[in-house]
Design a protein around this nucleic acid. Structure first.
Lengths: 120, 120
DNA sequence: AAAAGATTCAACCAAATGGTTGACAAGCTT
DNA sequence: AAGCTTGTCAACCATTTGGTTGAATCTTTT
């Protein structure tokens, strides 16, 4: 079976995605564009920093492919591109079994994995 | 209903968690301690960097509470503490509905949310 | 064509990051 | 007690980050 799109993400892409998410302003901006696209000015308005600073945060988000910017008239519209987040979630999904307190099922899981390994 | 433990995480905690995950060496180290605890030396062995550098990565992971270090004889044992990852996953879970290509169901979701908002 | 509006670019700055090396500390072994 | 082994601490360094301000760019309006 071919590895799924989301699991095939390169480490570099994950670096950029997690880095983009490591700043609360950027996480907040992502929230702000979930419902509809917005202009840079609209996005910047709630924050106590310059428009240029917000523009730089948008650079980081865009490098991680989490947003797209496109000209619309005299404004730049910013819209969410959520797909790369699937790669992050996919990375995290691996650990779900470890934080569930169902230690029995974790134990079962590990034993099953051990079996699989023996067969290699 | 009381907000669940995982959703109540402060932005600062999420900053630290996502920052910790934004480096591939640290993500790799996390993988390395999933199955069993390891010594710092064992963890450092695969990487082309000094033990001190790995020790600093462990600092970052420990600040995010993703690992615990404890002395055992002359070694420090490092073990995974996966629970904070749940906060990260929880943050990401919000976006799941946006990356599923089922645009119809997204549309339905947004309309339902709009309704809820009207009632506020 | 000139002026106004919306962003970005460029230069700069302080602080944080990710790495190095060498000294130090804590625990075994002898 | 002396000497390994294991890991951290401290000082240092180059690069990146997150912010600033002022000039430049692209569109629309007048």
């Amino acid at each position: 079976m071919v590895e799924s799109f989301t699991t095939a993400k390169s480490p570099a892409a994950l670096d950029q995605i997690f880095h983009a998410l490591s700043d609360r302003t950027r996480r907040s901006i992502l929230r702000d564009v979930t419902r509809s696209e917005k202009t840079v000015g609209e996005l910047a308005e709630p924050y106590r920093m310059s428009l240029a600073a917000v523009s730089k945060h948008l650079d980081v988000l865009e490098r991680a492919s989490l947003i797209r910017r496109e000209r619309k008239g005299s404004c730049r519209m910013v819209r969410l591109n959520p797909k790369p987040l699937a790669a992050a979630q996919n990375w995290l999904a691996f650990y779900e079994k470890f934080w569930s307190d169902q230690l029995d099922s974790l134990q079962a899981h590990l034993e099953k994995e051990a079996e699989t390994e023996e067969k290699r």
